[in-house]
Amino acid sequence: MTTLAAPALAAPAVPAGDNRTSLRASLHHIGALTRRNLMRMKADPESLLDALFMPILFTVLFVYVFGGAVAGNSHNYIQYMIPGMFGQIGLSLAMAVGTGLNTDFTTGVMDRFRTMPIARSSVLIAKLLAESCRSAVSLVVLVLFAMCLGLRIHTSPVNVLATLGLALAFGTGMVWVSMLLGMAMPNPQAVQGVGMLIIVPLQFGSSTFAPVHSMPGWLQAFTSVNPLSALADASRALINGGPVLHPALLALAWSVGLTVVFAPLAVARFRKRT
C-alpha cells in the first residue's frame, strides 16, 4: 500500500541533517525549566514539608527512642547515626527525581516540552537541579538540628564536604534506578510505593541506624554488601575519624555499577517515550 502512485514529496528546503540546540541555548532552557520546577515547589509548599521535617522527625525519633538502647546514651547515638543519615539525602533526592518525572509524564506537560525545539536532556537535568535544591534544604536543616542536639564535627569542614560529595555520588547512581522506575510506573503514587519497597530494606538493613554485629548472620551478609552500610561507615569515619578508604571505595563502586547498568536502560526508555 505504501507504494501507491501518490505524488512524491517535495524535497526539504535543506537536504538533510537536523540542527541540535546549541550548548548556550540548552543552558538557558535548563535555567527556565529549573525555575519552573522550583516554582512548582513554591506553589505546593506541602511538598517541602517532608524535606524540612523528615530529617527532624527521624533524628528525634531515633535519637531518643533507640539512642539509649543502641549506643548507651543519646549523645553517642547522635555521633553514630547522623553521619549515616547524610548519605541518605542522596537517596531521597534520587527518588524525588523519579516521582517528579512520572508526574510530568502523566500530565500533558511533557508532551508540550517534547514538541518544542529543546534538548531532551534539559528536562532531566532541570529536574535534578531543582531536586538538589530541595535536598540542600533538607541537609542544612539536618545539620543545624543535629548540632543543636549536640553533634560535634571531630574532623574538618573539608571532611563534611567530602561526606556530602559521597552522598551525591551515590545519589547519582540511584537517580538512574529512580528514573527507570518513574518511567515504568503508571502514576506517581506507584513510583513512591515501589520506591519505598526498595529504600526501606536498604535503609534499615544497613549499619545506618544500628551496628550490625548483633544482627543474624544472613542479615549481616546483606548489610555487608548494602551500599548504604558503606556510605554510613564512610560518612562516620569522615566526621568522627577512622579508616575511610575501604567503605568510601565500596560506596563509589556501587555508584559506578548502578550507573553502568541502569543509565543505558533509563536513557533508552526515556528516548522511547520521548
Partner: peptide, 24 residues
C-alpha cells in the same frame, strides 16, 4: 523523522488534554 528539531520550530500543538502546568 529526519529533522524533528527543525520541524519543532514551526509547529504548535493543542491536544485533547490541556498540557499546561497545573501548579503554575
Amino acid at each position: 523523522e529526519r529533522q524533528p528539531y527543525r520541524l519543532r520550530h514551526e509547529i504548535g500543538l493543542t491536544g485533547q488534554y490541556a498540557s499546561v502546568d497545573e501548579l503554575l
